[in-house]
C-alpha cells in the first residue's frame, strides 16, 4: 500500500477527468469493419447475466466466420483507428477507445484499488472464503479480520475441485471484497483489497472526501 497519499492530487485527478478510457481490442485475427463513428454513444451489455448485447462496435471476419462484437462498457467512442477499417488485423490490436463516465462508487473503487494491496485471482474460477475466515467475518465484519502471508483465506472452486488459496501479501485487514460467492472471477482480477491496520483511517478519509466532493452519483 502506498505510504503517502496525496488526497488533493487524487481528488483533483478525478475532478478534472472523471472518466475511464477503455481500449477495445481485436478479439482475434481477422478483417474488421467498424459499426460506430467517433463520438457515438454506446451502451454496455445488460441483463442479470449480461446476456443482452451492448451496442455493436465492429464486425470481425475470419475464414468466412463473421462475428459482431458489442460494447462491454457504456460511454462515448473517443478515438477510433479508422485506417484499420476493412483491414486484416492481429489479435489484440487496438481498434478504438471508449470514454466511460465514472460514477461516484466507481471513483471510490478506483482510488481504493490504487491504495489497497490487491490480492488477485490465480485462476478463472469461483471463490469463497475459507471456513475460519468466513466465521470471523460473520462475527466481526471483514474490516475487523486481519490476514497475514501464508494464511488460508479462500477456496477456489473449479469443476467441484476445491483448492485452498493462501494469502501472500503484507499483513492487513480485509477492506474490500471484490468477488461474490458463486460468481466466476477471471484470472488476474482482484479478489480482496487489503489494508494495513494503521492505514484504515486514511482509507476512510478518502471515502468521506470523495462522497463529500461529488454531489451526485454521476
Amino acid at each position: 500500500m502506498t505510504n503517502e497519499i496525496d488526497f488533493d492530487e487524487l481528488i483533483s485527478k478525478y475532478k478534472s477527468d472523471p472518466f475511464d478510457y477503455v481500449d477495445v481490442l481485436a478479439v482475434h485475427t481477422g478483417r474488421v469493419s467498424f459499426k460506430v463513428m467517433e463520438g457515438a454513444e454506446v451502451e454496455a451489455a445488460s441483463g442479470q447475466w449480461r446476456q443482452i448485447p451492448g451496442t455493436v462496435l465492429y464486425e470481425i471476419n475470419r475464414e468466412r466466420n463473421p462475428k459482431f462484437i458489442s460494447a462491454q462498457t457504456n460511454g462515448t467512442v473517443a478515438e477510433i483507428n479508422r485506417e484499420l477499417d476493412g483491414q486484416f488485423v492481429e489479435a489484440g490490436e487496438k481498434l478504438m477507445t471508449i470514454k466511460h463516465p465514472l460514477k461516484k462508487k466507481e471513483i471510490i473503487e478506483n482510488i481504493l484499488k490504487d491504495v489497497l494491496s490487491l490480492f488477485v485471482a490465480p485462476e478463472t474460477a469461483k471463490y469463497f472464503f475459507a471456513m475460519d475466515i468466513q466465521s470471523r467475518i460473520d462475527k466481526k465484519g471483514p474490516g475487523a479480520v486481519t490476514i497475514a502471508s501464508g494464511d488460508e483465506v479462500l477456496t477456489m472452486s473449479l469443476m467441484k475441485r476445491d483448492t485452498p488459496v493462501y494469502y501472500n501479501g503484507e499483513k492487513g485487514v480485509i477492506h474490500s471484497i471484490y468477488f461474490k460467492p458463486g460468481v466466476s472471477v477471471a484470472q488476474g482480477e482482484p479478489l480482496l483489497g487489503i489494508c494495513a491496520a494503521d492505514k484504515l483511517s486514511i482509507i476512510q478519509k478518502i471515502i468521506t472526501r470523495v462522497k463529500a466532493d461529488w454531489d451526485t452519483d454521476h
Binding site: Q51, L158, M159, S184
Partner: peptide, 18 residues
C-alpha cells in the same frame, strides 16, 4: 466439462463450478 444451461429467455450460460 462445463455445464451449458439454457435460461428461459434462450440465453445459454456455461457453469464450471457449483
Amino acid at each position: 466439462g462445463g455445464l451449458v444451461i439454457q435460461l428461459p429467455d434462450g440465453y445459454k450460460k456455461t457453469e464450471y463450478s457449483g
